[in-house]
Design a protein around this nucleic acid. Sequence first.
DNA 1: GTCCGGATTACCT
DNA 2: GGTAATCCGGACT
Length: 198
Amino acid sequence: MIGQLLETLEKDVVQAAQDLLGWQIVIGSMRARIVETEAYRTPDDPACHAHRGITKRNEVMFGERGRAYVYFTYGNHWMLNVTAMPLGMAGAVLIRAAEPLEGLELMRARRARARRDEDLLSGPGKLCQGLGVDIRFNGEDLLGAASQIGLEPGPPPAQILRGTRIGLTQGLELPWRFADGDRLRWVSKPISTLGRLT
DNA sequence: GTCCGGATTACCT
DNA sequence: GGTAATCCGGACT
C-alpha cells in the first residue's frame, strides 16, 4: 500500500489526491480518516505555491515526496499537505477535511469553539487546529515509522466526487478537488458534482 | 523597510 | 449569506 502510494505521488499528484481519500492521519492517540483533498502542482497550475519557483516556505515541495508541507495563511491558520511529484518538479495534496475516528476528546479540547463533532476537522485550518499540526511538522516523513505524524491505509471510499478547488484566485477551472461521496457530512463545503469517479 | 494579498474561519444578520 | 479578523511570505523600493 505504502509503496504504491509513493509511486502515485511521484507520477500523478491528481490521482494521488484521489487515492489518499480513505487513508488515516495518525498523530499520537488521535486518528482521522481523510475525506477531502485537493491537488496542486508545477508547472501548469498557477495556484500552486511552487509556481514561481523555490522559496524558503515551499522548499519542502521540491524535495522528497510523501513529506508534510505545512504553511501558515490568513493570519491564523495552518494547512497540511502531502508532497508529490518527481524531483525537480513540485506539487502537493492539500488535506482539506477528515472524519475523526479516535482521540476525539483531545480534538474537542483543541477546537473549543466546535459545537458539533462535524466542526472538528471539516476544513484545512480546522483540521490542523484539531490535530495540533503546525510548522513543527513541516518536512516530516509521513510514510516513515519515526515521525510524530503518519499516514496509514484505511478502507477506500465507495465513490469519489470531483469538483473545483476552493479559495483561489487562479486555476479556478481545474477540477482537482475530491471528496468521499459517502462521508459528505465531514467535508468542508459542498462539492460541485462535476463528476462521479467511482 | 514597506506593502499587499491570501489553498480560512467564525460570527453576525 | 456577508464580512471582519489576523499576520506571515513574497514582491518591490
